Computed example of a mutant assay.
Amino acid sequence: MQAQDFIPQSKLGTIDTGKVAWQSPSNIALVKYWGKKENQIPANPSISFTLNNCKTTTSLECTRKKDSENKGDFFDFEFYFEGKKKEDFKPKIYTFFERIEKYCPYLKEYKFTIHSKNSFPHSSGIASSASGMSALALSIVSIEKELNPTMSDAHFYRKASFLARLGSGSACRSIQGKLVVWGEHAEIEGSSNLYGVEYPNEVHQVFENYQDTILLVDKGEKKVSSSVGHDLMHNHPFAEERFKQAHRNLTALRAIFSSGNLNEFIEIVENEALTLHAMMMSSNPYFILMKPNTLEIINKIWAFREATGLPICFTLDAGANVHVLYPEKNKIEIFQFIENELLTYCDKNQFISDSVGFGSIRL
């Protein structure tokens, strides 16, 4: 598909009022997306586990503007987070509406009230842009489906992922599926730069209900935003090799997902996490998002894995917090290790227990 395929091709109907609510999860990338082209197009493909417990719930109410209300002149919305009006969140949503107006030409015809809340603390250091933007995109496309009831389910979910990407790149991976691919890859059928797709190939049962214990090392705001970090890849001396590496690692994961080889899975996932941060440390200007306790946790995980042979590994987002990944069958002994040896490196011993989920649901 091409971007213009998401512009409504037929005249849309109208509704006087509407209300919809979606619950959408965050996700954790195994092969990382770092670097983007114009219009939120990824510089390399990525694949992520959809999470189950870290979710955003968003409700969207709309009322059609009266002809006397300068209909079509501006976006009219109010945004509430955790029940409180949040004016400081509105610029990001306004920018999102500007990006998607071409594909959602009805936006200026309605007044919107948006209520959003997270299942995890907003200050927990877990990025909510993926879950938040995907939930909002799904809500908007649900309103469009009321205006155009003939929209197919397949087009609905593709368009929701397409719009979510324009709000936050990784949000397109939070719509459907346990494993989601975003970005064109020669060996993954249906993969696209425009939206995320559920991984279409065989997945070994060992990856069913895979566990993710998120260790909250630092809950503060990042000193360098992800958007700035992505932009620094444009003139990065190692960028092209990094993009090739992501393609190779995704190719290797195809065989790993089929065979269930956890040793090879661990090698790729940890390498991807460290490569992501190596790109940050070797950009110009360079920056470091890991904290001393991030490194302490990584070294503890390596030592525990060496001593026990248990298939525990880590991955990192663009921040200091550590995602500890392991199979459900090893949950008891690995979580005991986490409690006994890793929580001391977390901010106030805080963590989030999560696992692989199925994607967004309409409420």
Rank of each mutant, 00 (worst) to 15 (best):
D347I: 02
A252P: 05
N330H: 05
L342C: 15
I338P: 07
T251Q: 10
I266W: 01
T344A: 14
A246F: 10
H323Q: 15
P327H: 12
F351I: 08
I312S: 03
A307I: 09
L325I: 14
M279V: 11
E272W: 03
E272Y: 06
G319K: 00
N330A: 09
E267V: 02
F304Y: 15
A246N: 10
T294Y: 00
V269I: 09
P311A: 05
R248Y: 05
I256Y: 00
L250V: 08
T294I: 08
I268M: 03
T315N: 08
A252T: 14
I338K: 05
I288Y: 01
S283L: 09
F287Y: 15
L276I: 10
I256D: 00
I334G: 01
Q245V: 01
I334A: 13
E341T: 09
T344L: 13
N330T: 06
E306T: 05
K329P: 01
V324C: 14
A252R: 13
I298A: 02
K329G: 02
I288P: 02
I312G: 02
L325T: 09
K300L: 01
H277Q: 09
Q350L: 15
K300A: 10
L274A: 05
V322D: 02
N263S: 12
C346T: 15
Q350K: 11
A278L: 05
N249P: 08
S282Q: 06
I288W: 02
G357V: 04
D354M: 05
F314T: 07
A320V: 07
E339G: 09
N293I: 00
A246S: 08
I268H: 06
I332N: 09
S282G: 11
N293G: 01
S259E: 14
F335C: 06
N299P: 04
K331P: 00
L316T: 04
H323E: 11
I256Q: 01
M290E: 04
L250H: 03
G260F: 03
T315C: 03
N321M: 04
I332Q: 08
F287W: 07
A255H: 09
P292Y: 07
A255K: 15
L289S: 00
E333T: 09
E272K: 11
A246Q: 05
E328T: 13
N340A: 12
I334H: 05
H277V: 00
N263I: 03
I268G: 03
T275M: 09
H323W: 11
N284T: 14
L276A: 02
L274I: 13
K331I: 00
E333C: 07
A246R: 04
K329F: 06
A252G: 03
W302C: 13
W302S: 12
M279G: 06
F287M: 12
Q245R: 11
R305H: 10
I338A: 06
